[in-house]
């Protein structure tokens, strides 16, 4: 299990990295944490001719808290984000999701941007980003652009990023509506650190009456990309998330998804599991919100 021979470059800036990518074309590949890419290379399923190592680019590291957004630079380690006070307070859904990402050692190296760019449909960071309606920032030699998360994931391990683009940051919009914010993230995997058989993420705001004023809900591991389930969100908006409401939402999710069977689970198992995790995530988010001061 030795990688195919390749060339290696370690740019010091985003501009330099983009130049390398532009010159390298399809043959060039970015390496960030490498926790997904390197196994693929070892198995020779990924065969880049040039590896562009962005780990030492200072401007790709760090978390910033603005008035409307929390921004995570792409090379921020998952462990750093998990330990970060800003994330815990201002993007609590991401903090909850991060606990399920791999395990300590892979989080120490794996990055936020790397997980997004790899686009595993069962990945937790992508699911949280989808639910939070994140914007992906990408640079290339010809400029930069922002990609709404809804347009970012195209299929398993496929994104809207062009080969010459470098994912540089993810911006998470802050929910500013009055009321109590609650989040829930539930996941089931075969072993603790395995990819999710299914996962569910919820963020919501309850008003003083306990009525849901805003909600976003998504499931992962049950399709080719993480899925936001708008019909379930609509069903819950304006309700107090009573058991009937939550049960209906779960049923909507069950009907809305169409997972494929594989070695680990049948299709219907994943649908049932996802629906159940949605119930649990909704209950968790509701509890979370009600526990906060109005």
């Amino acid at each position: 299990m030795k990688a195919v021979d390749f060339d290696y470059a370690r740019p010091a800036s985003i501009g330099e990295a983009c130049g390398l990518l532009a010159a390298g074309g399809d043959e060039a590949k970015i390496i960030a944490g490498g926790q997904t890419l390197v196994p693929l290379m070892a198995m020779r399923m990924a065969r880049p001719a040039l590896l562009v190592d962005i780990n030492r680019i200072a401007e790709l590291n760090g978390i910033e808290s603005g008035s409307d957004y929390v921004t995570l630079r792409s090379c921020t380690r998952q462990a750093a984000a998990l330990a970060d006070e800003t994330i815990r307070l201002r993007a609590p859904l991401l903090a909850k999701a991060l606990r399920f990402v791999g395990h300590g050692q892979t989080r120490n190296r794996g990055t936020i941007g790397g997980s997004l760019a790899n686009a595993d449909p069962a990945a937790e960071i992508g699911l949280a980003a989808l639910v939070l309606d994140a914007r992906i920032e990408a640079h290339s030699a010809t400029g930069r652009r922002q990609i709404p998360i809804a347009e970012f994931f195209i299929g398993p391990m496929m994104t809207a990023l062009a080969p010459e683009e470098c994912l540089t940051a993810i911006r998470l919009p802050l929910w500013q509506e009055p009321g109590r914010l609650g989040t829930g993230f539930q996941e089931t995997s075969a072993r603790r650190s395995d990819f999710a058989l299914a996962a569910a993420a919820v963020q919501l705001i309850l008003d003083t009456e306990g009525t849901c004023r805003r909600i976003a809900l998504g499931v992962g591991g049950v399709g080719s990309v993480p899925l936001r389930i708008d019909a379930a969100m609509e069903r819950l908006l304006g309700t107090r998330l009573d058991d009937d409401d939550i049960g209906d939402a779960a049923r909507i999710v069950y009907r809305a998804i169409d997972p494929a069977p594989d070695l680990h689970a049948s299709a219907d198992y994943r649908r049932r599991l996802a629906a159940s995790l949605v119930e649990r995530a909704l209950a968790e988010a509701k509890r979370d919100a009600l526990a906060r001061k109005a």
């Binding site: 603790r192 650190s193 070695l263």
Partner: peptide
Amino acid sequence: YERFAYDETGQLVSGSFMDYLIPSSHE
């Protein structure tokens, strides 16, 4: 957890540590 599983075409579908599930300290 552990199974060397084959599909109908005779392919081994749990031929790596990602699919052949050895219990960790959590299990």
